[in-house]
Design a binder for these strands. Structure first.
Lengths: 211, 211
DNA sequence: TCCGGTCTTGACCATTTGATCAAGATTTAT
DNA sequence: ATAAATCTTGATCAAATGGTCAAGACCGGA
């Protein structure tokens, strides 16, 4: 991932009011479109149509389609990573894990499009976020794995593979965004969020209490 | 989903040796390509290239790109559904669930492309499998939910929402195919399968033993 | 061997789509 | 008010791509 995706950084690094405003409008629309149809399945016309700007105008702000994608993806990654960052080694393990799962679930419900965009990117081999995965994400995950291992070592958590626990938490929480149509088809409408939260916490953390 | 996706059913419903052979070759290649790049991101040329047939030749066997996709998707759905079908109400609940999770995980490892194809389809709103989700899948899931509820009722399983348990099992097992690049980036290479199996069983079923 | 049906493909078409550009409209600073 | 900078867009282009077609190669049964 490179930086500097927008266009005008040449002369005045400062962004115009219109500029930053339209960039946000474009990225909002792009998140919707890309997360729904995938990169290849989305067209500039769709994004332009959704945000009420003309196609050439999009190219005024972003030189290439790939730049729009890159920008919206980067904005998403920050959001996506945030909850894990807050896992506190000092807090009570089960409570802290419950808080993390709950926060991840909240994000899934609040920003399903972000989850789907990320899922799509990974599903297709992470062509744009390979360095993110092997860099920042890996470091953070290793740090948090150490925290979980420590909790286990001091007997506050049943022994469990930390990495796979993190995978499981991600998988289950994001499932409700990424597979939303399936979830809705099987529950008959949107599932009740509190019920979902309780069930997810039960299933994921129910077996972690030490004897 | 409609039937009759291939071409020649008109005169002789019987398929030539070459015909059924090439159809399989095409579908195999199509699964690879579609699961990697998505529907829109895949081209007939890619599929043709991968299976060593010419582009017009593909159109000889399948009239439209969508027909190829449909055919490979249908073939995948059968495979995908199979393990759940075998959930036996008479068996020991925890053992039976463990067997199911294990079988699902085996399928994930054996046919990651199938998992990804399905994931991609759902992720993009299930445009081709809506009726499958709301029909056969829903019925089967409701039947199996009843089984789980029964296990709980007779005290052989800790109370847990059956539907969300099924979701969790799907989410976690398929995660290792759908998010394989992320898993590999974080584990540093392919994760050990037996270790993964133990961890997944621990996490998903560890809290289900009744007191 | 020979014939009808099956299979294969090079050349081609029409549409979609990412991207460009020049000309004009609008905003901003002075 | 005015000039400079910024912003906007209709028209257009070139490449990619789903799909067609006619001509020829191949195969299988009599």
């Amino acid at each position: 991932m490179s930086k500097a995706v927008a266009r005008k950084p040449a002369k005045s690094a400062r962004k115009t009011r219109i500029q930053s405003q339209n960039e946000q409008i474009i990225l909002d629309a792009a998140l919707d479109v890309f997360s729904t149809y995938g990169y290849r399945g989305s067209t500039i016309d769709q994004i332009a149509g959704k945000c009420g700007l003309s196609k050439p105008n999009l190219f005024y702000y972003f030189r290439h389609k790939a730049d729009i994608y890159q920008a919206v993806l980067e904005r998403t990654l920050v959001t996506w990573l945030e909850p894990l960052r807050t896992l506190d080694p000092e807090a009570d393990p089960l409570g802290e894990l419950a808080r993390y799962v709950s926060a991840k679930l909240d994000m899934t419900f609040a920003k399903p499009a972000a989850s789907r965009l990320f899922a799509n990117e990974i599903l297709h081999g992470a062509p744009h976020v390979g360095t993110f995965l092997k860099g920042p994400l890996k470091e953070l995950v290793e740090a948090k794995s150490a925290v979980i291992r420590h909790w286990i070592a001091v007997g506050k958590l049943k022994p469990v593979d930390p990495l796979h626990l993190i995978f499981a938490i991600w998988a289950v929480t994001q499932h409700y965004a990424d597979f939303a149509v399936q979830v809705e088809a099987l529950t008959g409408g949107e599932p009740d969020r509190e019920q979902t939260r309780r069930a997810v916490l039960d299933i994921l953390l129910g077996g972690l209490r030490p004897n």
